[in-house]
């Protein structure tokens, strides 16, 4: 019995040491899936890039009201966020053929400055285990997922920005 307790304490300490030493490796990266750019060409999600700065990856749809609330709320402060942290928002639309042609006009009509892609048959959505939209991921400079959140309530964007600042400074936000 004593041995078991000792063993578990050892394992506990060992794993903490392991965790601290290899923290980055424990974070998942995003899978490479082909989505569509706004000019109709194919784009692999492995090629998402922001020069080592954080990326906000937001799954949304033109028919999803809370998604639009979220993207509007961020749009109001996006310039400040970019200046302060260099963060980039990638808006991944899951609109299918029915509504995908509304994506470009809606983005411009709302005056959003985001990088926009289409995932019309949900390939990337499934690979990222997204059940519901909005579902927003925060990626660090190595394009590893450090945080994710589903649904949106006004004010959530400020919590997200706190995390973005931490990530931009090289830290990992607490969930």
């Amino acid at each position: 019995m004593k041995k078991t307790v000792f063993g578990s304490v050892f394992l506990f300490l060992f794993s903490i040491a392991l965790d601290a030493g290899a923290q980055d490796k424990s974070l998942p990266t995003i899978p490479g899936v082909n989505v569509k750019s706004m000019d109709g060409s194919s784009f692999n999600t492995e090629d998402l890039e922001n020069d080592g700065k954080p990326i906000i990856l937001s799954f949304w749809a033109t028919w999803c009201k809370p998604c639009i609330l979220e993207l509007n709320a961020i749009a109001d402060v996006y310039t400040d966020w970019q200046e302060e942290t260099g963060v980039k928002l990638v808006a991944m639309s899951i609109d299918d053929t029915r509504t995908s042609s509304m994506v470009g006009p809606m983005v411009n009509g709302k005056g959003w400055d985001y990088e926009v892609y289409l995932d019309p048959n949900g390939d990337f959505k499934r690979a990222m285990n997204v059940n519901l939209v909005p579902h927003t991921f925060l990626l660090n400079g190595n394009k590893q997922i450090v945080s994710q959140h589903t649904t949106f309530a006004p004010g959530d964007e400020e919590d997200l920005f706190e995390k973005v600042k931490k990530v931009a400074g090289g830290g990992t936000p607490q969930e």
Binding site: L13, F14, S15, S26, P28, N129
Partner: peptide, 26 residues
């Protein structure tokens, strides 16, 4: 091991386990 059976009480063990299966998501 006791710890593995009651993983919640031993966060270290859980972390160790997670590192081994970091490619599994759901």
């Amino acid at each position: 091991m006791l710890c593995i059976a009651a993983g919640i009480l031993c966060p270290g063990t859980v972390l160790l386990a997670q590192q081994g299966i970091s490619g599994i998501h759901g």
